[in-house]
C-alpha cells in the first residue's frame, strides 16, 4: 500500500526546495528579475529602492559622456496594451552617473549593471571607461535606442558590423567586467546581430530594447509624443521579445537577459524557457507598482513548485526541446 502521508511529506519537502537564486555570469542574484535600463534607475538610491523591492539585479538609466535633458514632454503615454516612450536618453552624464553607480554598489546589495550609450564606437569606449571606477558588476551597452535617430542616426544594433565595432571598442577598455549588449527588435533578423557581437567578445545579450511605434491622439489630431515616435514596451512587446530571445538562444552560446513585456511570473517563466538566463522588468512597474519584482518572483516560485522545478536554471531554453 502506498504511503500517502510520506508522499505528501516528500512533496512538501520538494516545494521548500525551490530556490529562486540565480547565477548570471558567475554573479549570484536573489532571483532572476533585473530592473531594465531606463526604469526607475536615474539615481543610486532609486536603484537601491528597486533592489529593496525585490529586483534581483539593477541597471542604471543609460549614461552618456555629457549630461542630456532628453526630449520635450510628453515623453511617455499609455495605450491598450502597453506604454510608448521617447524619453530621449536624458541622464546626468558619466561624471555624475559614476557617483550614482557607487551609491548603488554600496546600497543595493544585488549585482549592479552600468549602462552607457554614445554616438560613435570611440565615444562608447570613452563612456564605458568612465564608469569603471564605480566597479559595476556588468557593463551594458545600449546600441539600440529607437528614439534618437534624428540625432544619432540608425542605431548600431541595426547592423551586425557596426554592433561588433562598438562591442570590440568597449571590450578593450573594461578589463574583466562582463559586457552585455542590448539588442534591438527593429531589425529584419536579430540572430546575425547576436552572432556578430558574440564573435566580437560580448559576454551576454540583453534582448530586447523597445519596438519603434507611434500613438496618435485623434482629438488633438497629432502624435502624442513630442518626438512623434517612441518605443513600445509592456504586454504588447512580450511576444516579440520571446521570439527574439528564442532566435538568439539558438544562434549564440552566451547567456541572455530576456527583456520585454514581462509582467507576471508566468511571463518570466516563458522568457526563460525561450532561452533567457535572467529576466528584465520595466513596464510591469506601471501595471503592478513597486511590488512588481516581488510579485513576479513569487509567482515564478509558485509555478516552479507546482511544476516540479527546483532552480530557475532548469527553465532556461526548455521550449527548444519541444
Amino acid at each position: 500500500m502506498p504511503n500517502v502521508l510520506n508522499e505528501y511529506k516528500l512533496e512538501l519537502f520538494e516545494k521548500k526546495m525551490v530556490d529562486l537564486s540565480n547565477s548570471f555570469l558567475e554573479k549570484t542574484a536573489p532571483n532572476p528579475t533585473v530592473l531594465a535600463s531606463g526604469f526607475m534607475g536615474v539615481t543610486g538610491l532609486s536603484l537601491a529602492s528597486a533592489a529593496a523591492h525585490g529586483a534581483g539585479m539593477v541597471t542604471i538609466k543609460s549614461l552618456s559622456l555629457e549630461p542630456r535633458k532628453g526630449h520635450k514632454t510628453p515623453v511617455i503615454v499609455g495605450f491598450e496594451a502597453g506604454l510608448l516612450n521617447a524619453v530621449g536618453l536624458s541622464n546626468p552624464g558619466v561624471v555624475n552617473g559614476v557617483e550614482e553607480l557607487k551609491v548603488a554598489k554600496k546600497k543595493a546589495g544585488v549585482p549592479v549593471i552600468a549602462s552607457v550609450f554614445a554616438d560613435t564606437a570611440e565615444n562608447f569606449a570613452k563612456a564605458a571607461a568612465a564608469v569603471m571606477p564605480a566597479e559595476p558588476d556588468f557593463l551594458e551597452i545600449d546600441i539600440s535606442c529607437p528614439n534618437v535617430d534624428s540625432e544619432f542616426g540608425i542605431p548600431f544594433a541595426a547592423d551586425p558590423g557596426a554592433a561588433a565595432d562598438v562591442t570590440k571598442a568597449c571590450k578593450k577598455v573594461i578589463g574583466s567586467v562582463p559586457l552585455i549588449v542590448k539588442l534591438s527588435p527593429n531589425v529584419a533578423a536579430i540572430a546575425p546581430v547576436a552572432k556578430s557581437v558574440e564573435a566580437a567578445g560580448a559576454d551576454a545579450l540583453d534582448c530586447i530594447n523597445t519596438l519603434k511605434g507611434m500613438v496618435i491622439d485623434p482629438v488633438a489630431r497629432r502624435p502624442v509624443l513630442t518626438n512623434k515616435f517612441g518605443g513600445v514596451s509592456g504586454p504588447a512587446l512580450k511576444p516579440v521579445a520571446i521570439r527574439c530571445v528564442y532566435e538568439c538562444y539558438k544562434a549564440v552560446k552566451i547567456p541572455i537577459i530576456g527583456t520585454g513585456g514581462v509582467t507576471t511570473g508566468k511571463d518570466a517563466v516563458e522568457m526563460m524557457m525561450a532561452g533567457a538566463s535572467a529576466v528584465g522588468v520595466g513596464s510591469a512597474l506601471y501595471y503592478r507598482g513597486l511590488d512588481a519584482f516581488k510579485l513576479i518572483a513569487g509567482e515564478m516560485k509558485d509555478f516552479m513548485k507546482s511544476e516540479g522545478f527546483k532552480s530557475p536554471r532548469d527553465l532556461v531554453g526548455l521550449a527548444h526541446e519541444n
Partner: peptide, 13 residues
C-alpha cells in the same frame, strides 16, 4: 506613474 524614475527623492519615487 512610477516608471521613469526622474522624480526620485532619496530613494522615494
Amino acid at each position: 506613474f512610477g516608471v521613469c524614475g526622474q522624480c526620485d527623492c532619496g530613494g522615494m519615487l
